[in-house]
């Protein structure tokens, strides 16, 4: 198991390296970090631009800059991923990309994590139920909801949910759902119960929005794989042995039917991160989404690269966890 894990982590390094090259080249080619400064009216003094170019390492060649970005050797001490430094920012000379990134990461992971857990749980439930009652009214309803959810623009649905939350609050006459902000500030200095109610108020609506798409596609997968398993020989054997239905479903069928979903969910985390950006934008969370939008608006190349690489790492981690989960779910797989 340990050997396998280590081998998988090592195997992820080339992919990560390739992703870093792709990210770096694309961001570097597509924009000029000093575009706004250069277009300023009246034009700034050439010495100012030169100073900024030196600060942002724009006076070096692209391969040199990539080397600097990864290792930091030959830089001014503010760059080099391997040293844990993410590079200078265009937003201000003191803006620390790494510090801000990880501060925001917590907020976003809270949303992404909650959405993933609920989407997975509900998808398994919905998938199993529709498979067991194939072609029933419930199955059709869930199928239709699935189609609707897959076609739904996340940010538009977020806006609708926000309106619904406001309407609900007015109807009840109290602030049940918070429709703006992430609630980090409000949770400070509260006891456990206060934190729980606070989290409920702030997280319910964004979580529903974010989990919808993933729930829809995962429940489809779960239904298909469950149907396949239910029609397999070993489930028939289990039934023939006279095992009660509940045991057949839970111990025999479900466990195998979860395996395909693990892969799909791990790949799907990239999509959830996409959705999180949009959801955060609507609900005005101060998470990675806000960080990202500010970075794009300010042409902050190093911040963008850091962001994209971080999300790559998250997806790779999710895939690794999925691979290790196979061993737990599927008794045929042994990691020697």
């Amino acid at each position: 198991m340990l050997v396998y894990t280590v081998r998988r982590v090592l195997g992820a390094i080339p992919i990560l390296l390739l992703a870093s090259v792709l990210t770096f080249v694309l961001i570097d080619v597509s924009g000029d970090p000093l575009a706004d400064l250069r277009m300023q009216q009246p034009p700034p003094d050439p010495s100012v631009i030169q100073l900024q170019e030196e600060r942002l390492y724009l006076d070096r060649s692209m391969p040199e800059r990539y080397w600097l970005w990864i290792t930091g050797i030959g830089g001014n001490g503010d760059i080099g991923l391997l040293q844990g430094k993410f590079g200078p920012s265009t937003q201000s000379a003191t803006y620390d990309i790494g510090e801000n990134l990880f501060l925001r990461l917590g907020t976003t992971l809270r949303l992404v994590g909650a959405a993933m857990v609920f989407a997975l749980g509900l998808a398994v439930l919905a998938g199993v139920v529709s498979a067991m009652r194939q072609y029933s009214k419930l199955d059709y309803t869930l199928t239709f909801i699935g189609f609707l959810a897959l076609a739904m623009p996340v940010f538009w649905f977020a806006g609708i949910m926000q309106q619904a939350g406001v309407g609900f609050n007015e109807l009840v006459g109290s602030q049940v759902f918070a429709t703006i902000g992430d609630g980090t500030y409000q949770a400070q200095g509260q006891d456990l119960w206060g934190r729980i109610t606070n989290a409920f108020a702030y997280m319910t609506l964004p979580t529903i929005v974010l989990m919808l798409t993933s729930f829809a596609s995962w429940s489809r997968y779960q239904r298909t794989s469950m149907l396949e398993v239910l029609n397999s020989d070993y489930v028939r054997l289990a039934r023939a042995k006279g095992l009660p239905n509940r045991v057949v479903i839970r111990r025999h069928a479900l466990r195998t039917a979860l395996i395909p979903l693990t892969t799909v969910a791990a790949v799907g985390i990239a999509g959830i991160i996409d959705g999180a950006i949009l959801t955060e934008r609507v609900f005005q969370w101060r998470g990675l989404g806000e960080f990202f939008i500010a970075a794009v608006e300010k042409n902050d190349s190093y911040a963008l690269m850091a962001w994209l690489l971080l999300s790559g790492v998250l997806v790779i981690l999710a895939n690794l966890i999925a691979d290790l989960l196979y061993g737990v779910l599927d008794p045929r797989i042994r990691y020697e």
Partner: peptide, 13 residues
Amino acid sequence: VFMIVPLLVMVAA
């Protein structure tokens, strides 16, 4: 590599 980057974020960036 193309599968691990969040598409929307990449194209928006």
